[in-house]
Amino acid sequence: MQTLPRLAITAGEPAGIGPELLIRLAATPLAANFVAVTDRNLLRRAAERCGLTVELVDDDGGDISQRPPGQLRVHHVPLGAPEQPGTPDPANAQHVLATLAEAADGCMQGRYAAIVTAPLQKSSINEAGIRFSGHTEFFAERARADVVMMLASPELRVTLATTHLPLAAVPAAITADTLTRVLRIVHRELKAKFGLPEPRVAVLGLNPHAGEGGHLGREELDTIIPTLETLRAEGMHLLGPLPADTAFVPSQRDRYDAVLAMYHDQALPVLKSEAFDRTVNLTLGLPFIRTSVDHGTALDLAGTGRGDPASLIAAANMALELVARRRTHSQGHP
């Protein structure tokens, strides 16, 4: 019998919704060897708040071929201070970073097949005097990798040329170097992780109507179109630049496998409005698989036991699909 993939699950902000979502994930029958990288006592308290009985087993690094629902292996990383649901404590910043380091290093050393992350509170880490931009940047630095953010639902994959920038700063950030770097990573990862032999990427324009021939902005003419032409010459299948207001209509979606948006709010409202609880955040370009929920710490719900685990379950499912595809490919199957 094949062993279950070992997925490292980080609980994120101890005072947030993450620990309770992790407990609810463990209660599902998903065929995975979940290893919670966090404080075991935090998980016990989270299980009590959820009214669930969960068997917490110290992780011995071994493989298993089946996991009873409600069983959860734990790689214990002690808290810096007891959690108070809804009130993040900077004293736990080092704990959070230690869980991320263990998960990343464990993947690179072959101890875990993938990482699934619950949400964290960036402000609490920064308040501890530690410069921290987020999961994506942490893993990129840890793995010394060049990365791209992707958000994916069962119906749509979206990648971003720029992420959390003020809108006024976006045009200057759309350069030939940026687009080339991002599109090469996206193209490579759609082949490697998603098994698409000839990925088709729709590239959105920056301006309304994709600039309308320069009448509504010249970024398309001066930067985007020449860059796409260069990359097409390398063999990439790139559509666009497409007007963002029509690129997502159903009749267009069969033409592409993923979308590259120029900025955060150009595409994500479409994705989240139709699949908020089924959207998964992936980091492309890492030497390991990393998926995440696509929501925040929900401090107002923390401690109530009422958090919806749908996004974490979707993230775990996607990680399992990517691991299975990698296993199949490594065994020489098409």
Rank of each mutant, 00 (worst) to 15 (best):
L239W: 13
R218T: 10
G332N: 06
H333W: 15
D89I: 05
V116M: 09
V35Q: 00
G61T: 04
E137K: 12
S251G: 04
T10P: 12
R49F: 00
P29S: 02
A8G: 10
A143H: 13
P226S: 02
T223C: 12
G110V: 05
M150A: 15
A143E: 12
L204T: 05
A145P: 11
P309S: 01
T162K: 04
E102G: 00
E83F: 06
P243S: 09
A128H: 06
T180A: 10
E155A: 12
T99D: 05
D222G: 00
G51K: 14
G195E: 07
A114C: 05
V77M: 01
L301A: 07
E212S: 08
D58G: 01
E229C: 02
P250I: 03
T178V: 08
R218A: 01
L221Q: 15
G106K: 09
L260M: 15
T136W: 01
Q2P: 15
L282S: 11
R290G: 05
G61S: 10
R181A: 03
A15N: 05
T136P: 07
E55K: 14
A114E: 10
C50F: 06
G205A: 03
E13A: 07
Y256Q: 01
A233D: 13
A32K: 01
H187T: 13
V147L: 11
V147C: 13
H237N: 14
P309G: 03
R232C: 07
N207Q: 00
P241Q: 01
P69C: 09
L79S: 07
R306D: 02
T223H: 03
E20D: 06
T117W: 11
A36K: 07
E48R: 15
P250E: 12
P78E: 06
A244S: 12
L165V: 14
N207C: 02
R111S: 06
A202T: 00
E13Y: 07
V96M: 13
A26R: 14
A81G: 10
L216M: 03
F132P: 09
P90M: 06
G106N: 02
A324F: 07
Q66E: 12
K122D: 11
D222E: 14
R200N: 10
A118E: 00
K272T: 08
C107F: 01
S311F: 04
P166H: 10
L167T: 13
L268S: 02
R45S: 08
A210T: 06
G110Y: 05
A244V: 02
S153L: 08
V203S: 08
E20Y: 06
S153Q: 11
V35E: 06
L56G: 06
T38S: 14
V57L: 11
T178P: 01
T246F: 03
G16Y: 05
F276W: 14
L190C: 09
A128D: 12
P69E: 03
A192V: 10
M318L: 15
T163D: 15
N281I: 01
D222H: 06
H95T: 07
V323H: 05
G307S: 13
A267L: 11
I23N: 05
A261E: 10
E274P: 00
